[in-house]
Amino acid sequence: MNRYLKLVHMEIHRFRYILAALLGLVAVVQWGALVWSARRMDAALDEVEKFGRYTMYINELSDRKISYAEAIYNAQQLYILSVLAVIGTLCAYLLFVWYRDWLGRSTFIYRLLMLPSARSSIYLSKLTAIVVFIIASLAFQALSLAIGGVIFEVLIRGDRQGESYFVDIVNATLVLQYLMPLRLGDFALNYGLGIVAVLVVFTGILIERSYRWTGIAYAVGYVLICAAAIVIPINVMGMYRTSSYLYTAEIVGIELAIILFVAAVSIWLGFRLLRRKISV
């Protein structure tokens, strides 16, 4: 346990600069986009008040107030881009977290595999580090939205500020709806599926590292089979069809069992490969 925690600490320590840079990018892009959007809307409101000219931001029907959620909505492309940059980097990190230890002049995997503790702790530490990065990114996104709210209040005159609730802010962009689902069940499903996907990719990487060239085909096959095992039953059982033979709760139960099975097989296979088949 102690060595596992030390490995987790080391993995986080190794990624700290990249994570800090990513979160810095999120802050700069989102706050910059917010300032740009809020100013444009404020200028549009000036136009209406001074010259009676309506624009795409303020029309005859609007209440002549600007809300924080509207400001985000009008700059949502930049919000989406910044979030996708974080997701993309974390996805690339899934591969990097393993391959960097094999490649280059210094092959750290030798040392990791020669540690006097169960090799499963290598797998678990890398997985834990990824989960920590996801939670950190999510927490920072929430913080960024909160700070954005303060920036908005500073930028826009009090009498022009419209009400904005957290639900409106999250609903302002599609990416935030996925990132911060408002229902606990959706939140658990999105992030649970994400973690299972990480497990499947990790095991795919270990298959490739164990069998090398033929391993590439095995790994791709494994990832595709796992994806099919999760996706196909939803369509076959007709989760979104009213004429489905099974109740939605039953389909969800079966699907949950499949997801847990895929996760368990991935962990078991990953541990076994690390213990018996992995090659430096």
Binding site: R14, S106, T107
Partner: peptide, 9 residues
């Protein structure tokens, strides 16, 4: 081994 086994950083 004949090469380093600790991270270059």
């Amino acid at each position: 081994p004949d090469h380093l086994t600790l991270p270059p950083s």
